[in-house]
Design a protein around this nucleic acid. Structure first.
Lengths: 345, 345
DNA sequence: TTGAAAGCGTTACCAT
DNA sequence: ATGGTAACGCTTTCAA
């Protein structure tokens, strides 16, 4: 049977040229695919004559050849991708900075960080979706993945799984980071300052509960049995929502508020001040995350600081774990939440 | 020759089990790989008996089988990955929100958004690195990629390339977004308010110049030939840096400042107020990005708002472009920069 | 209803 | 020094 070479498929008019492959480069340069591979990867083991190298390079240039990462990974049996699921809510400044540092540090170690939109799925289902990419390591920034999920990832070739979560997860390098600690610290601080009727801001908005729920819970826990009360205060990140909350403030009878984080604290504090509520005389306010803006407010904002690991440290941990996956997860102290007492409480 | 099956490589002690493949599932279930594929992908065209389906599912479960995305993409010849290079600097709140929306909207359209750390490389070199992933679409959030880069991506199978940049890029759906407009608007506004000696804050820090340079340049441009002066004000995002700048303020002799964005404006405004400089009487301040916090400052912060496309709109644009790559890039008006005049100017 | 086989793009091994 | 070939894991067409 005669095969007509390169008959264009009779579908679309622009006839989308197929993506050039290394075989195309080889054909154009008049060499074999192996030679193309050697030249383009600067393989030291094999010597290729200079003229040949040149021909191959020119051919690749001419065709606009770009190697196919998936094919390469398939062949190699591994990749240098470090996977980082994206958060369920827009990231705050603290986290953005952290991700940026982490990414930069890993890039210097020749890894590629991929933030992957793992929408909808949760827990060990999500782990399966991540495992499809066969990352060499995974950093899970929220709780929710369990030992099963970790096992799936490891069976799929992940040499390191690092979790940031309250409880250590079997099989993972568990960096213990409990947002409930933030709530606990804030509430304990307010209680120690003599406050007894404490509001806790709970941001509205999909995905926010991942962080707000533990912060609320921690506050409740710290105050249980003390006789102090905790009042949940839903609040959207808008002037209107804050004004509405401030308008019904006197009816709530609160003498303190833990405002979820510094940004919400600023929002609420302004609304309260507008309606004549004095801070900290009438109500003590505590934020969290120790953002720059907290120091700029008047009164200066008390806040709870979390000792996040630096991006560089975490990158180096990942690298060590990848190089030696057999090593037991390094134990470490939970990241503490420290109250930074300023003027608002 | 007799081949000893599954001889473990005599290397490491924990003998890392190889990752289970669909062949392993097939073997365990006593069927062929094709059947496994049919069952696991719910192929409608072929009917598989219920008992077989069950056996396959159980085998997959037991082995912890997860399909290999790279292999699948290789075989399919395409993917649903939308690539988004990460910014060279930590993202601000405006951008974080945008990315989150964009990702959510694309997920609903069954795309997978991947943020890819494209560190170091720039322009068309970066494009080559992105092309290795064979994304179906690419959203380039910074200028720097040229027609060459777009061509590389398209030749590599990208059916849509969307750029957010000042000048339209040949071959791409170019959303025209010029940060110089922000600088122009701010400067023109300050000039119209009678200010003539105008400072422009330039954030320090790697990667910031991508946005700060055009904003500065736009300010210069708007004032050239008017007799007004532009003074460059390097500023790190810290209280100390702001205090240092405020300390030498009177020597600068400025009557207005465009503070890069609302966050820097807040930082500088506070430092100025601390040293007794009155806003807006002594110095007019304009921020940018129209963040919530600008409305919370006193005096309320004037700002320049950029009409970013919503994540949903952009997602739908990407989807349309992917479905019909032949269509000419949809023309559109450049996104305007609008001055929101409040009290600080 | 199920199985065999080809092929996606790449690279490593083994001939030449 | 270079080229043929097999194999990575998966899907799909064709044949039984």
């Amino acid at each position: 049977m005669v095969q007509i070479p390169n008959t264009p498929a009779p579908t679309k008019s622009p006839a989308p040229r197929p993506v050039p492959t290394s075989a195309d480069v080889a054909r154009l340069a008049g060499v074999s695919r192996a030679t193309v591979s050697y030249v383009l990867n600067n393989a030291g083991a094999v010597r290729i004559s200079e003229p040949t190298r040149l021909r191959v390079r020119q051919a690749a240039e001419e065709l606009g050849y770009v190697p196919h990462a998936a094919a390469r990974a398939l062949r190699a049996g591994h990749s240098r991708v470090v996977l980082m699921p994206t958060l369920p809510a827009p990231a705050g400044p603290l986290y953005s900075q952290f991700v940026h540092d982490f990414q930069g540090a890993l890039a210097r170690l020749e890894y590629t960080v991929v933030q992957y939109g793992a929408t909808g799925l949760c827990g060990d289902d999500a782990a399966r979706a991540w495992a499809e990419l066969r990352p060499v390591a995974v950093l899970v920034p929220t709780p929710g993945i369990g030992p099963e999920g970790v096992a799936v990832l490891k069976r799929s070739g992940a040499r390191a799984v690092v979790t940031l979560s309250p409880a250590p997860v079997e099989g993972a390098h568990a960096l213990r980071l409990d947002h409930a600690d933030v709530g606990r610290s804030a509430a304990a601080h307010l209680y120690a300052r003599g406050r007894r009727r404490i509001g806790v801001v709970v941001p509205e908005g999909r995905g926010m509960e991942v962080f707000s729920a533990p912060r609320l819970h921690g506050s409740r826990e710290a105050l249980s049995g003390t006789g102090a009360t905790v009042t949940e205060l839903p609040l959207a990140y808008s002037e209107e929502s804050a004004a509405a909350l401030a308008a019904r403030w006197s009816g709530l009878g609160l003498d303190a508020v833990f405002a979820y984080n510094d940004e919400y604290a600023m929002l609420l504090m302004r609304a309260l001040q507008e309606t004549g509520v004095r801070v900290p005389e009438d109500v003590a306010v505590v934020g969290a995350d120790d953002l720059v803006l907290g120091r700029l407010l008047r009164p200066r904002l008390s806040t709870v600081r979390i000792a996040l690991p630096s991006g560089r440290e975490l990158a180096s941990l990942v690298d060590r774990a990848v190089r030696n996956p057999a090593a037991a997860p390094e134990p470490h102290e939970p990241f503490g939440a420290t109250v930074v007492h300023r003027e608002s409480s």
